Amino acid sequence: MRILVVTVVHHPEDARILHREIATLTRRGHRVVYAAPFAARRVAPRPGVEGVDLPRAVGRDRRAALRAARALLTARGPEADVVLLHDPELLLALPGTLRRWRQGGRAPVTVWDVHEDTAAALTMKRWLPAALRPPLRVAVRAAERLAERHVRLLLAEDAYRERFRGPHPVVPNLPLVPPSPPPPPGTDRIVYLGHLSRARGAFDLIEAARALGPEVRVEAIGAADPEVRGALTEADRAGVLHWHGYLPNDRALALLRGALAGLSLLHDQPNYRHSRPTKVVEYMAHGVPVVTTPNPLAAALVNRHRCGLVVPYGDPVAAAEAVRRLRADAGLRRGTAGRGRAAALAELDWAERGAEFADVLEGWAEEAGLDAGGGVRRGPVPVASGN
């Protein structure tokens, strides 16, 4: 198949988009065009994938990115068999585009990959005036129901099903579990992997590092929101922690090996209550004990598999104490690491679910009149319905 993947919000090296979904599709032999904000993020397309640069949608400055995405979809959409969209903003570019595709007689199967609870996420957008958040949440829910009538949906969490009327396949955001056993967890280094923001516990991470002192090195791996960058930079300069900034997925994951613990310090926010933090599963997959706040899905994983410790929301001292407990107890440290990795291998491996993702796209293409194996169309391809 010819597949056009589009994002104006996510980093072009986003693990779900590039390292899981696109990698799975290219291994199946499909041809992928990847449109993303490469220049804005100062990265180049990976070999084997045709890259198209788009402006980045950030804060209130989204019009240029949406105009560019609409132009791209108009021009390149009819060349594709499947268009895979990764941002709810891109739904705004579809109404006129779908009409032009129909008029031209060549409409691809259009898929929205639903990564998050968009309406709940609006409550955390500090650039959005508070008075606008309630009406926008209502508008987002209405837009989601409208999208369900015109495009196919892939959901990243089972809990997202309740937002939609019809059934839609769930493709969880799982990591690739390394096949070779990792080294045992050490005693002198802990890691945080993922985007850094106030709501994701960036300030708590800094205070936990202060509480731990120089005996335990704290490594933060990920890009950061503007409001926490200054504090992270200052903490890095003072030797409180080491902030790597954004790293490509393969380099970031390599830093997990042998860590004493992996931290997930999410605050209690609506957008997080129904989402499983990918970092928690990545820690488990790499044999790293987990220290997490009681985010429902993260705590459920940790308690079910006994692969770490749960600490209260907004309590960096408790997080530091949990790290000390793991450091002092070799049996606890190695037992949590081993049980977490075993659970990841058995239940949480993209190697298993990635095939289901590709099967779904190929099945939809075949329903629309495309032989996904041979690329032969059997007739006009309608715009896919979500129902």
Rank of each mutant, 00 (worst) to 15 (best):
L361T: 04
A159S: 13
P129K: 11
A35K: 01
R28G: 05
W101I: 03
P88K: 09
A159D: 06
P270M: 00
G375H: 08
V218F: 04
A202Q: 09
V140E: 07
G308D: 08
A328T: 09
R63D: 15
R251Y: 04
R27P: 09
H168I: 03
A202D: 01
V111E: 00
T74I: 11
Y246E: 15
L232V: 10
G48P: 02
T97N: 08
F38E: 00
P45E: 10
A320K: 02
R189Y: 02
L266R: 01
R165G: 15
P45D: 07
E116I: 08
V58I: 11
V381M: 15
Y246L: 14
L98K: 01
A342L: 08
R304Y: 08
N295K: 07
R339I: 00
A121K: 09
R27W: 15
L98V: 14
A209H: 02
A147D: 05
A15P: 06
L176V: 15
G314T: 12
L136N: 03
L18D: 03
N295R: 02
G96E: 10
L247G: 04
V6Q: 04
R99A: 14
G96H: 11
I17A: 02
E356N: 10
L255F: 03
P129N: 13
P88A: 14
R152N: 01
G201C: 13
V58F: 12
E352M: 12
L370E: 04
R324H: 14
G262M: 06
R76Y: 12
L253K: 05
R41W: 12
A119D: 04
T110M: 03
A337N: 00
D371S: 01
T24D: 12
R63N: 13
L92E: 01
R106I: 01
R217K: 14
E234Q: 15
T97G: 06
A143S: 12
P296W: 00
E162C: 05
L4R: 04
E207S: 10
P179G: 13
G194A: 01
D14S: 09
A142S: 10
V302A: 02
A223S: 15
V240M: 11
G375K: 05
Q103L: 13
H195M: 11
T24Q: 08
A365D: 01
T292Y: 06
H19F: 10
H305R: 00
E116G: 03
L266I: 13
A300E: 15
H267V: 03
V58E: 14
G258L: 03
P270I: 02
P380I: 09
A120S: 12
R273F: 06
T123N: 08
V383W: 03
E207M: 07
H195Q: 14
V52R: 07
F203I: 10
L153T: 01
A143V: 11
R31I: 10
T278K: 09
E366N: 09
S180W: 11
P316F: 00
G369Q: 07
S180C: 10
A238F: 07
A285Q: 02
